[in-house]
Design a protein around this nucleic acid. Structure first.
Length: 262
DNA sequence: CGGCGTGTTCAGAA
DNA sequence: CTTCTGAACACGCC
């Protein structure tokens, strides 16, 4: 699930149920998700501290604990779940933060990423030093600079060090809305096309954040990419699929003309 | 058994 | 140096 809108939703869960609450215990069901910190150190550091106001940077969630910070990344299958403490642990609840009013659970099936512990704000900033500007707040001028790179536009938009927060589904959706083939070279986009891309990104993010994920609406490309014979919701043409930037990619061959044969 | 996947990183090729 | 591809990580589903 997790792209920017999903992580924004997890931030909301932590803000609503965690902020201001004291951690009474930490349960590490699977230390395999802990990165650079052991279960003992994590438990000792966190127990007794209170959750501060969580912050999202790209696909990362930062939770300050009056001194140290928790850094969480959700990979492809992670989530943050609130529970009153009455529901038995889910098989994929890898770490549970027990608070005074219930539990926040880091749930993740594939364990592709995990949880980091930073000693202070500087250490957290160093861990995230390579992150590019956040896709939700980047300005047009900075977006222009980033997307003028020579490589395929999909590769740039997915590159977290260029622009932070977009993933495979969002990038396909944005390119489709902007009518730009995902394999187009960034430095060959016209200024009008770059503007379409920027506007599509803003609109897609604005629409996706309240849902907490990329909505599979029938009017969106994302609502059609999994069907047996998917067609473009705009023109009805059969959608094309292939690979770009190493990922499964879906586009409309009519709305988004191929850069090589067009 | 084989293939696939809303993420990231690394090795190796061009 | 830049850009791209494929494999790897781990797990469940088809």
């Amino acid at each position: 699930m997790p792209e920017l809108p999903d992580v924004e939703g997890f931030r909301g869960v932590v803000a609503e149920y965690g902020t201001g609450r004291r951690i009474t215990a930490v349960r590490v069901a699977d230390p395999g998700v802990l990165r650079g910190v052991g279960a003992g150190e994590l438990t000792e550091t966190l127990t007794g501290r209170s959750f501060g106001e969580p912050e999202r940077r790209g696909k990362w969630l930062l939770v300050p604990l009056s001194g140290p910070l928790l850094l969480l990344h959700f990979g492809m299958t992670g989530s943050m779940v609130w529970d009153t403490g009455e529901t038995p642990p889910h098989r994929h609840d890898r770490v549970t933060f027990v608070l005074t009013n219930g539990e926040l659970r880091y749930r993740d099936m594939r364990k592709l990423r995990g949880i980091w512990l930073a000693a202070d704000q500087d250490a957290a900033d160093r861990l995230l030093a390579d992150l590019g500007p956040d896709a939700l707040t980047v300005g047009r001028r900075e977006f222009d600079g980033v997307t003028r790179a020579r490589r395929q536009i999909k590769a740039t938009l997915m590159d977290q060090s260029a622009l932070a927060g977009l993933g495979n589904l969002l990038v396909d959706e944005i390119c489709w809305r902007a009518r730009i083939h995902p394999r187009r070279q960034g430095d060959r986009l016209t200024e009008a096309e770059r503007g379409e891309l920027y506007r599509a990104m803003r609109r897609v993010l604005r629409d996706a954040i309240p849902t907490g994920r990329v909505p599979g609406r029938r009017s969106w490309l994302t609502g059609h990419r999994d069907g047996p014979h998917p067609t473009c919701p705009r023109c009805g043409t059969a959608l094309a699929h292939g690979r770009a930037a190493g990922r499964t990619t879906v586009w409309c061959p009519r709305c988004q003309p191929d850069p090589d044969s067009g």
